[in-house]
Nucleic acid binder design. Structure first.
Length: 566
RNA sequence: GUCUUUGUAGCUCAGUUGGAUAGAGCGUCCGCCUCCUAAGCGGAAGGCCAGCAGUUCGAAUCUGCUCAAGGACACCA
């Protein structure tokens, strides 16, 4: 449990080393010059080296010299690179300096990955900062829809990426068990209940009521327990009691469905507690004391326009009931001031985008820091089957729910597909493709790579060939282009996870998995493990094992099953 | 109308804080199993990076305008 985790980041280390060498050389070759604003990057084509820099190009104007002359001076100053991660540095094109990684670096990557094992990819980039990731937070008034399915996969994998990047992550679900929609929920249930005894025409469901079949089912269950006892009772009492029956059932349903979807929250936060504890009254008072509110037409308004938002917003309605906005301010006050999160990330549907500026502003207005609240807006999903759009509508009762989706699509597929696109993209979910169990489906493509490796390891083991001590392995035998590319790519995992965390874009991880599988399949076709001479066989065996580790770590992050055979 | 997201191959999308000949998958066409899983690999064809102007050594990327699509502009959440 307390095994010391080894944090590796070979790609970033090599880039930093190149930068240091370069700065050192520049300081000697051009002692009286300031450093230009240059970049160290991985060239698209590795004929241009493993790591490249535009230093000389960027410095041309500053140094008053042609780029190639600067580059030449720098390369002379770099001199002998033995003892570094690089074998040589070359000048190319208009003045790029290209570094080529030495054998030792490739060897270190393979042995490093084997050594780090299931922790390879973890870094301390996040410095254990406390991050709260709140996602899905679906209304407990009905089943979850397709947007929740995307939000769930997105939020859960984002949380995983943050965790791997060294943050202290809390996954959280806000249960909207108070407010207007609960009142509406109660009225809808009550109407369905009364209809059972008085007929459908006797009581009409409000136009904006919940139309779904699930409401009827819950009302029926309530009727089975209590009979017609409530038909003569006041409406208020019926609403209260039927909600008290139905709400916990729905909340449990959400928990069950999400657990099935492999999402387990650390915190289920009840909105009601904010009302009952007086937390809402408290932030309202703070806002008032800070002069951020005013009264108009009987309602209490928040001066959102003075805090970066477009227009003012109602906090307390004329009827005395606080709005969702007021509750949300109290909720985020709780996250920051009471629970001490450094950052709160909220995953919202794009339709909530108007809410972003005023929430951040409200944080400032209660004396907190709005910049600590980050909102990931996610565009809604268009469901497609055979090129035909599949309509989803929560109100018609014919909605495609999360459960419907998972009945049809394997969970591996759903989680993978929703994380294939960045959150802001308007994505299309192709049911046919997600269900297909062939090479069209990228999930199988990645899983197959893992199964393939397992198969090789198994076959070799049957012949008595197993991976020996990594120290005795001669990884410098791995000289084939496909081997080199695979190693280079494996070296990039920690950096990719950091990038996913930094940009709040877990889709990077998914695409990394696909690219990794591609490189492995290429290696598989180009190089044989089994028939290679013993020392090469050992080196390739090590590379396969390292690749297997990386695929397993990545699929594990995404919570996708990792098959040993297919 | 205001705000916001998006526009890259026939289709779905990448493009690493401005870099070298713009990439991948699917689809189309042509190849590769006597051999570790062909659920794989290689090759070909396919592009006015929505358009125009600007910024500079250099733009799909940054700025401005135009066009097109999605979303938001409630005493709903």
């Amino acid at each position: 449990m307390m095994n010391e985790i080894k944090y590796l980041n070979p790609k970033a280390n090599a880039m930093n080393e190149a930068k240091a060498l370069l700065c050192n050389a520049a300081a000697k070759a051009f002692p009286d010059k300031a450093m230009p604003n240059f970049v160290i990057e991985i060239p698209a084509d590795n004929k241009n080296g493993d790591i490249a820099t535009n230093f000389a190009l960027a410095a041309a104007k500053l140094f008053g010299a042609p780029p190639r002359n600067i580059a030449t001076a720098l390369c002379e100053e770099l001199g002998d690179l033995s003892g570094t991660s690089f074998s040589r540095a070359e000048i190319a094109g208009p003045g790029f300096i290209n570094f080529f990684l030495a054998d030792k670096w490739f060897c270190d990557v393979v042995s490093g990955v084997l050594d780090a094992g299931e922790n390879y990819g973890r870094t301390q980039y996040g410095e254990h900062k406390k991050i709260n990731v709140e996602f899905v937070s679906a209304n407990p008034t009905g089943p979850m829809h397709l947007g929740n399915a995307r939000g769930g996969a997105l939020g859960d994998c984002l949380a995983a990426a943050m965790d791997w990047a060294g943050y202290d992550v809390t996954r959280e679900f806000l249960i909207n068990d108070a407010g207007n929609q609960i009142i509406k929920f109660g009225k809808s249930l009550a109407v369905r209940y009364l209809q059972i005894f008085k007929g459908e025409d006797a009581v009409a469901l409000a136009e904006d009521g919940y139309q779904g079949e699930d409401i009827k089912t819950l009302a029926k269950e309530f009727a089975d327990i209590h009979g017609d006892a409530y038909t003569e009772k006041p409406m208020d009492e019926l609403c209260r009691d039927i909600v008290a029956y139905a709400l916990p059932k729905n909340v449990q349903g959400l928990k069950d469905d999400l657990a099935k979807y492999r999402i387990n929250y650390d915190v289920w936060f009840s909105e009601t507690t904010l009302h009952e504890s007086g937390a809402i009254d408290k932030v309202l008072k703070t806002l008032k004391d800070n002069g951020a509110t005013y009264e108009s037409e009987g309602a209490v308004w928040y001066k959102a326009s003075e805090y970066g938002a477009e227009k003012d917003e109602v906090l307390v309605r004329a009827n005395g009931i606080p709005t969702y906005f007021a509750a949300d301010i109290a909720y985020h006050y709780n996250k920051f001031a009471q629970r001490g999160f450094d950052t709160a990330i909220d995953v919202w549907g794009a339709d909530h985008h108007g809410h972003v500026a005023r929430m951040k502003g409200a944080m400032d207005a209660i004396g907190l820091d709005g910049s600590k609240l980050d909102v990931v807006l996610m565009q809604l999903v268009r469901l497609v089957r055979d090129g035909e759009p599949v309509r989803m509508s929560k109100r018609t009762g014919k909605a495609i729910t999360l459960t419907d989706l998972l009945d049809e699509v394997p969970i591996d597929s759903a989680r993978f597909f929703f994380n294939l696109r960045e959150p802001g993209s308007q994505m299309e979910f192709d049911l046919g493709l997600a269900v297909s169990q062939d090479s069209d489906n990228p999930v199988y493509y990645v899983q197959y790579a893992h199964a393939r490796i397992c198969s090789i390891l198994k076959n070799l083991a049957a012949e008595g060939i197993v991976l020996g001590d990594a120290d005795t392995c001669n990884f410098s035998l791995l000289q084939e282009p496909s081997e080199r590319e695979l190693i280079r790519f494996i070296a990039g995992l920690p950096d990719e996870i950091i990038a996913a965390a930094k940009n709040y874009d877990p889709a990077r991880i998914t695409r990394y998995a696909v690219d990794l599988a591609t490189l492995y399949h290429k290696f598989y076709n180009a190089c044989r493990v089994k028939d290679a001479e013993p020392s090469l066989c050992q080196a390739r065996l090590a590379l396969c094992t390292a690749t297997k580790t990386v695929i397993a770590n990545v699929l594990g992050m995404l919570k996708i099953t990792i098959p040993e055979s297919m």
